[in-house]
Amino acid sequence: MKRLIKDESLCIGCGACEEKCSTAYFKENNREKSRIKVEKMEHWNRLTICTQCGVCAEVCPTLALKKDILGVVRLNKKECVGCFICVGFCPEDAMMQHDDYHEPFKCIACGLCTEVCPTGAIKIREF
């Protein structure tokens, strides 16, 4: 199983991960279109990441969300009807949605964000 892990104590809230993610997948530097989220709190930085727990796949009415061989939940956009139940039911709030698109989007543990993280707050871990 492959997934992103986080250590919020190391996060400095620079947003490099968000920039990398949205640029890679949507060709746009827009944190609203990132599959990882960083929020600056009063004394810490909150990182919202997908744990690949699979709740989204359980609630999907069209089986458009499925775990691949590495345990990464992937969306088959062709089968998705854009109901966003997965967005509402994600226990980590890590299933993302943007009104520019009819389908939601999520982290597929590609690791691009980890490459630009200056502090090692996010890493790809294979179990």
Binding site: V81, G82, C83, F84, V87, G88, F89, Q97, H102
Partner: peptide, 27 residues
């Protein structure tokens, strides 16, 4: 086909936001 935008809504964003809010209540 079935897609989320076939009603060609005036403002799909309002519908998305309202729907997700209720999904969260259910969850």
């Amino acid at each position: 086909e079935v897609k989320g935008n076939l009603n060609n809504a005036f403002d799909q964003g309002i519908i998305n936001e309202t729907g997700i809010k209720l999904h969260r209540e259910m969850a």
